[in-house]
Amino acid sequence: MVTRWVSVAVSIGAVLLAVFVTAMLFWAIGRDPIEAYAVIVHVFVDPGLLGESMARGVPIVLATLGLIVAFRMNFWNIGAEGQIYLGMFAATGVVLWGAASHMLPPALMMPTMVVTAFSVGGIWGLIPAFLRAKLQVNEVLTTLMMNYIAMLFVDYLVYGPWKDPHGHGFPLTIPFPDYALIPLIPGTTITSGVIACVVVAILVYYVLSRTKLGYEIRVVGESASAARYAGISYMQVALLGMLISAGLAGLGGLSIVSGIIGRLRPRASPGYGYTAIIVAFLSELNPWIAVPAGLIFGGLVTAGEALQAALRIPFSGIQVFQALIFLFVITGEFLKRYSLEVSWGRR
């Protein structure tokens, strides 16, 4: 019980420390930190900005839930960013095909996009999983490299074959028709993607704690050799786990093109896949905490833009803030471990 309380206290302390250091950074360039944080808080109060924030939180939450699956099996998937790009590619592909061929009834559009984005993102994630399981190729580096490849691939499409012919030469696809967009929750400014996040969190929790696959993921995560003795096929668990992990990031990609931008453009994700890594650790790989935490981090993206517009504080200030939270949270692990040792010592 003591450690549980300490754990929460340390996480809160880490965030507060990041708030303080970032305030110093604002102050150092001659901006009033109080004013800056007022702008950040305003993002979560103003209905319009809140809606924007939640929309941006959705891809972060979905990618985080995916990463939780991978990290639980000790698979270092740093590739959520690339998997998001593949999801955007797949979702957009369905829309463009549907618009050109008229073979897809509007009612089937969104379900088809969901299935395609999940599958294509997932298949992209199978590559590093297979290489790791079959040939012991380090997944950290392969997933990282694949991020750049995925991003350039989307660049190629929107600068080339997928460019809107009536778009005055800008690298953009045609705008999505209404039935390919994620609707708002009626009567609010909040995207219904938030509901999807909660549903996915329930599913991830269920898979991880109530199914055979979830059990195998835990065993593999604790010790790959123990898993082998227990007769668990590492290949099978890694492939299935990464299919889910990367597939969810792919859905995150769908939520960007259909829930934020309404079309595909280059660099459509400002690093949501990396932000998701931070959120995964901040929420201690707990799917329930990941939902609110991810939505808040979505708000920080909106806040970053608001800071730049209102106070001419660079957007990267928010990136620094997020990275500081990450640094302090992982450093806080040390305090948690230390407090554990102390409490054992007392007993």
């Binding site: 950074l25 740093i78 990267s316 620094v320 990275a323 500081l324």
Partner: peptide, 21 residues
Amino acid sequence: RLNQIVSGLAITLFGLGLSGY
């Protein structure tokens, strides 16, 4: 004695943000 992968990533994200700032 904490996880080196995570620490390194955090520093990369921090460096990218700081250089932009």
